[in-house]
Design a protein around this nucleic acid. Structure first.
Lengths: 334, 334
DNA sequence: TTGTACGCGTTATCAA
DNA sequence: TTGATAACGCGTACAA
């Protein structure tokens, strides 16, 4: 591979000094150099196909033009659109995305983010936040720009782009109530995460406002099997349940399984609503009603806020994205 | 944020020269320095919490310890396990992963990979290869280590980790034949990609060997809607079709839609097999039979081969991963 | 407006 | 075995 041209080569070709070439190429300092010289340098750079060496530049500027993204589990379909949104926002500003997969639990998250920081990323987007998260606190207080996505901490000092869980649960509960349901239960996610906790609290509050009984089972994680078990427990406790409002799509799929196993019919016997509205949910049998969250936009916004932070602009506190409700056949009039 | 300690600091603390400290810290040159000095330096480094500055190191060594991954569409669920596999293999060797999303078509792929190369990645994993792919050819001949994943070019000089499409299609076709089907059609993917082309050729060959009639419709892309249209065309041409062997899960989902729309029953009237066996396929109604490919392992292998290449070791030609068949209710005896 | 000189943190070469 | 020094490619005070 033939050596790429350096700034020195450009300067030589243009017949000027390296520093002049540097200034001519840098939009910020370009104004200080003679117009004709600028032209010459630009022409030479173009002709040689000069590309500034990012490593050398980073060494000088202490900016790598890259950001780290810490994901709890890359294989979770939830994060694909978030990553796509982040990438789309970053690319326009010349930034790249370094991915850290923290799928081995909490201590791993610290290791992964430390790794990214060692690589001198200019900022971090974290999708792994717990409600009380010392890792996030430490990075934040270390001075590195951080933006949380999807989940937030209880500490509102951290910028975060998340869905409005309260509004989303309200949509689901109100929808079920409007269909005539009166025994509506909630399959909650882990209360260590804002998504699990917030949706549960929102459910309890909304159900009480409707004058109904609060019926909750917490699943150990946001996955299908824990969802099955939670619904099995629900059926034991409260056989009269006619509706399940799940904190997440996978938990709702678990509900599908448990309902089928109990010999009941989804929709007519027991209504089910999911949360997230991930792809292909409309292809299930019956198609699943779910609270829809704009994850791609969530990722895009997180990246934008992070870039603001990096540029020294002030970041907002938590930003709530308004959800909508995708109504399908899994919720029927009762 | 308090400045991180530099090699100079470590050297000073240990009472030795910078270059000695450098040698003591580097496993490769460590043997050349006095054991006691090594101890001293290591202790000082530990005590100061020294972490080598990767940017400065890269500037000297011309290695960034990072690899680029070019994906045709991050949101396609197919690539999540591939990314997870790549990441897992890389992390162990101290490498990081830079993601480029090339979702804006062919010219965009060239731009994205150029961008990654500009960032001095040590190698590239590309999931975007077309059968004839000048972009890949150019990068390869430019001297940058490249490994293809999932798709391959016709040029066997490029290392590639792909599924054995012929074996996979054979599994599906033989399965359908064994169920008694005699009018078996194929919904093909774009023939510009090895996956589309290879599976189609394999289908034609296997069908002929069984003495049956070749019935193919090519979809414009590996997505649901093109699948619907392709199957609609199939039904017009050959009303007697009892089985559809699709080149991809999404095309098979399109087949589900088209079959339902035609008032027929999936499984009993028309059997359907998918390809890839992506998550949640078992939750469809009816659960879908599909050729299963070990995508996580595919990603992991690609990363390993790339690291071999980077280390100067010779890479194998195309590597074929053996598929299996996940039999479910969408394929029934006829 | 341009050139000089230096430094960013490492590693590599050469002497000692 | 260790130290001195240069170099990687770029940006930037400072001087001219």
């Amino acid at each position: 591979m033939t050596d790429r041209p350096t700034l020195k080569d450009v300067a030589a070709a243009a017949g000027v000094h390296v520093s002049t070439a540097s200034r001519a190429l840098n939009p910020a300092t370009q104004s200080v150099v003679n117009d004709q010289t600028v032209e010459k340098v630009l022409a030479a750079a173009e002709q040689l196909g000069y590309r500034p060496h990012p490593i050398a530049r980073s060494l000088r500027t202490n900016e790598t033009m890259s950001v780290g993204v810490v994901i709890p589990d890359v294989e979770n379909p939830l994060f694909a659109p978030i990553l796509a949104g982040i990438e789309a926002s970053l690319i326009d500003e010349g930034y790249s995305m370094l991915i850290g997969n923290a799928d081995r639990g909490e201590p791993h998250e610290a290791a992964v983010s430390a790794d990214l920081l060692d690589r001198q990323v200019d900022g971090l987007i974290m999708a792994t936040a717990r409600r009380h998260d010392p890792v996030v606190d430490k990075i934040h207080s270390g001075g590195t720009p951080v933006v949380l996505v999807n989940r937030r901490t209880t500490n509102d000092a951290h910028p975060a782009i998340v869905g409005d869980d309260q509004a989303g649960i309200n949509l689901a509960v109100d929808h079920l109530v409007s269909l005539g349901h009166t025994v509506i239960s909630h399959v909650a996610g882990p209360s260590s995460m804002s998504t699990g906790y917030g949706r549960r609290i929102a459910y309890e509050e909304r159900i009480r406002r409707h004058g109904l009984k609060v019926i909750v089972e917490e699943a150990s994680s946001f996955r299908v099997d824990p969802g099955i078990h939670a619904v099995e427990r629900l059926f034991e406790r409260e056989p009269g349940i006619t509706a399940i409002c799940a904190a997440n799509d996978l938990l709702a799929i678990g509900a599908y399984r448990a309902i089928n196993a109990a010999g009941k019919t989804i929709g007519s016997d027991v209504a089910v609503s999911g949360y997230n509205d991930m792809r292909l949910l409309d292809l299930m049998q019956p198609p699943m009603t779910a609270v829809h969250v704009a994850y791609r936009r969530m990722g895009a916004s997180a990246a934008e806020v992070l870039l603001d932070l990096i540029a020294g602009r002030k970041a907002p506190g938590p930003v709530l994205l308004e959800p909508s409700l995708s109504v399908r056949a899994s919720t029927m009039p009762h």
